[in-house]
Structures are given as structure tokens and as C-alpha cells.
């Protein structure tokens, strides 16, 4: 799926968790994406991360990396 839209959506999730600080935000974002994104969307964002992950906010990038490794 179009990475631009997924990057936007992921960053939007990231912004909600931002005020909770990095340590809570990263698992929060990861769990949200795991619970609500269909596998093809997760796969597309992983592919994007592998390609450098341009445009992903730092917490979001960490969250997607964690998710990928679980």
C-alpha cells in the first residue's frame, strides 16, 4: 500500500503517544499498529523501514522496528 499514507497514519499514532515519553510511547505505538493494521499494511511499513524509513518520526521508527522483531 502507498507508503506515504501509511507513514502519515503511523506518525499520527505517534503524536498521540508523544506526551507519554519515549519509554511508554514506543510500546504504545507498536501495540496499536499490531492490533489495528492488517498484515499487508504492516508488511508495507516494514518494507519502508528497510528502505531507510524516511519520514517516520523517531518514536514511530523505534516502534515499527520493535514490532518487526517480534
Amino acid at each position: 500500500m502507498s507508503p506515504d499514507r501509511l507513514i502519515y497514519m503511523a506518525n499520527q499514532i505517534g503524536k498521540f503517544f508523544q506526551s507519554q515519553g519515549h519509554d511508554k510511547a514506543v510500546p504504545g505505538i507498536a501495540e496499536h499498529i499490531r492490533k489495528f493494521w492488517d498484515p499487508r499494511m504492516r508488511k508495507a511499513i516494514f518494507t519502508h523501514l528497510d528502505a531507510g524509513g524516511a519520514g517516520l518520526d523517531p518514536n514511530v521508527r523505534d516502534a515499527i522496528a520493535t514490532l518487526r522483531n517480534t
Binding site: 500500500m1 502507498s2 499514507r5 492490533k35 492488517d38 498484515p39 499487508r40 499494511m41
Partner: peptide, 18 residues
């Protein structure tokens, strides 16, 4: 066991061809 597509995601996936 995997969550499916939500309506806006369905539209995006349709345009993408999946």
C-alpha cells in the same frame, strides 16, 4: 488470527490492486 482491513484501508488496497 490477523486483523483485517478497515473501510478506508479497503479503498486504499483496492486502488493498489490487492
Amino acid at each position: 488470527p490477523e486483523p483485517g482491513l478497515r473501510i478506508p484501508n479497503m479503498f486504499d488496497a483496492a486502488i493498489e490492486g490487492s
